[in-house]
Computed example of a mutant assay.
Amino acid sequence: MKKYYLRAAFIIAVGLFISGCAGKSDLSLNIINGEKLEENQLLTTKNSIYLVNGGDGMKTTYLSVVYGEEIAEGSGLAAVNIANEQLCAYTAPVVLEKLVITEKEALENAKLNQSDYVIYSRVEKWTDPLGINCTVGYYTDEASVVLSLYSTKDEKLLNTTRLSKSSCPFKINNIPVSTGSAEILYEELFANWKNNMFAKVSK
């Protein structure tokens, strides 16, 4: 009986220790314009998509308090590459626009491409500190991307969603035991967004 209590105490202690070491993670998908799609409005795997790079976001550094945030060069392309990889494995032809263009230009191109929908991807934040430097509340891995979904035929904005998440890698004794990055965060964010925008595929 004594051994049982000792084992239980040990398990609880380890659980508390691990939970205390785990990094904070904030995940959100917030519709900031338009409405959530109804069941009959959801995209299907037969729909073609024009995926557009809306530009780079900003990043936080140690010097941001003094000099402000810096441009996260290449973040716009990184975000659309992640989205493209997921969409290509899931739906009909996807045309990827790597050059930064306006939403008006995107709709014009989508008509030429005969794409059913436009996904316009604009990065807001894209921060990727070294794991050991990641500090909850200030200097964290962070991805924040605004996605606007348009119907090409109607030239209509269906909705705009802000996908955002920040976290620090799991640490033990202040040493990260896993990697973290804006890319890893956005892979999860986009997968969740995609699941909300596409009709479920029946097996």
Rank of each mutant, 00 (worst) to 15 (best):
R7V: 14
G68K: 02
A83W: 03
L37C: 07
I175E: 05
G131R: 03
L77G: 15
N47K: 06
G68Q: 05
Y4V: 04
V66T: 14
A78N: 13
A78E: 14
T102Y: 13
E38P: 00
I49W: 07
E183Y: 00
E183A: 11
A110C: 10
L16E: 00
M58V: 03
A143T: 14
L157K: 13
S144Q: 14
G180F: 01
T44K: 13
I49P: 10
V118L: 01
I172M: 14
I132N: 00
V177L: 15
F190C: 06
T152Q: 01
Q41T: 07
Y138Q: 01
F170P: 03
T45C: 03
L149R: 06
K165R: 15
G68M: 06
T135G: 00
T179L: 12
N47H: 13
A8V: 15
L77D: 14
S202C: 04
N53A: 02
E38K: 15
Q41C: 11
A92R: 07
L96K: 14
Y150G: 03
N40I: 01
K111S: 07
D154Q: 12
S167W: 04
E39T: 13
N192V: 09
K156I: 08
Y186G: 08
T179N: 15
F190W: 05
L63Q: 11
R162K: 15
E103G: 12
N81S: 08
G57M: 09
P93I: 05
D128R: 10
K24D: 04
Y50D: 08
L149N: 11
P93S: 14
K194R: 11
P169S: 10
L99Y: 10
L107S: 10
I12D: 07
V177A: 02
Y138L: 01
Y5E: 11
V52A: 09
D141E: 14
Y139L: 10
V14Y: 01
G55S: 03
K104A: 15
L130S: 08
A191P: 00
Y90A: 10
G20I: 09
Q114R: 14
S48G: 04
A8Y: 08
I101L: 03
I49N: 13
K98E: 15
V65P: 01
V118S: 08
I18T: 13
I119N: 07
Y139T: 15
G23A: 02
K125Q: 03
Y62T: 06
Y4T: 05
K104G: 12
M58F: 05
L43R: 11
A8S: 11
